[in-house]
Design a protein around this nucleic acid. Sequence first.
DNA 1: CGGAATGTTGATTATATTCAACTGTTGTGG
DNA 2: CCACAACAGTTGAATATAATCAACATTCCG
Lengths: 238, 238
Amino acid sequence: MASIYSAGSAGRDERLLQGVIASMPMFRDVDRPSIGLIASQARIQHCRPGALIARQGEPLPGVIAVAYGLAKLALPRRRGEEKVLRFLGANESFGEAAALLDRPCPVDVVALTDAMLAVIPVRPLQQLKERDSRFANNLVRILAEGLLSLMAEVDANSGRSSAQRLAAYLDSLADPRPGSVTCAILLPVTKTALAARLGVTKETISRLLRNLREQGLIEMTQRKITILDRVRLAGIAS
Amino acid sequence: MASIYSAGSAGRDERLLQGVIASMPMFRDVDRPSIGLIASQARIQHCRPGALIARQGEPLPGVIAVAYGLAKLALPRRRGEEKVLRFLGANESFGEAAALLDRPCPVDVVALTDAMLAVIPVRPLQQLKERDSRFANNLVRILAEGLLSLMAEVDANSGRSSAQRLAAYLDSLADPRPGSVTCAILLPVTKTALAARLGVTKETISRLLRNLREQGLIEMTQRKITILDRVRLAGIAS
DNA sequence: CGGAATGTTGATTATATTCAACTGTTGTGG
DNA sequence: CCACAACAGTTGAATATAATCAACATTCCG
């Protein structure tokens, strides 16, 4: 098992850090000097797939921003299983709530691909929050959005069958244009990871996808899935 | 079915409002004049059990603070069923996130007992947030806490059997002193509401409680439950 | 090439829901 | 105060859903 300390190589390229940090929603409209001060205390971290970026229950090294690559936020379950709460992609960040309250990390954070992260330590953020009302207001917005989207997540996953959750997920991956009848999508992660994301086993995902194929709703070649009847698919998601 | 407009009687007792509002964590250390200004735009609402205080998807009349009584936050499911996210008791509040972002209410809010609420309209709160950094910081704290506790909730409810969730719930109701072997607790709500809170049917709750009784872990007289073996109960919660 | 990771499939089992019937409790109006 | 309706809770039988177990196939990579 990978440890936090072997999660990957780290660096302090100031230019890179400023760029990554300045593009975070958190720092929107925050003045350059403040961003520079934060960047000067942050660090870059490169990760290989499977690297453990943060562990549930342990102190958070800081707010984690993904520059490129993909990670997952997961609740560990007994026997190496886990429930994936969400994926964390480029330009997304994690840990604001726990960092600001000095609470332990509520989830495991694990790299799914090669990834580059910026790790922004906690104290400078807490200080900036006190000093800069623009930043504080951004925090309010980000935390409120996080709360509502987590509620939406709970709403979507409770009281819906696994078939409905899968259909909804596939539909959400499809091109937002509703005009196209068929459309090709590429799963961003393995089917096993998708299963954990939907809260089911890989066996169940395999069977559900087979059903969709047998019903003529999709075609499938490994991670490439073609939606043949988006209307009926959306119907299943109900 | 009760409508929002028949949810109960409303009033504007200024003293009462100031007292209720000043005691909210949101307004801690906020100066009196600001609290007075907020209170002057808020209103008191009395509700009977079953009254619909806010409906999912509709605009929120404002942040809702409970002065006394009990309400539930619930995700409506098909056929009149629902998943209860949490109960809202005296001195708790709801709606900060949706109010600040001008988003529709993410859940149904329903009174479970006679209750008195303060309804604080959205605009004054948004304005105070811009003006008062103390208030903004309180908001950050409250939203971050809400986010973490919702995550803890998801953690507790996923991958645990209904028996484990019930045992954990009963244990959480018990007197925090770990010394006492047996202890009497009183369910704050009906068993049907408890079932919805734990995400199961009332039939399942009935059977689970019967099992606990048959195993000699609890005694039960209606809503009064006596825990006979707290250690084994905590063991079931695992 | 070979081994690890990923995915598939069938059989079996566990968990909780659904349906249906019934009992107990509570609050209200006659 | 009692009758009765509405609500809350119990119980058993049948059913649905997805997990688990076990075996095997496929793909990915070094």
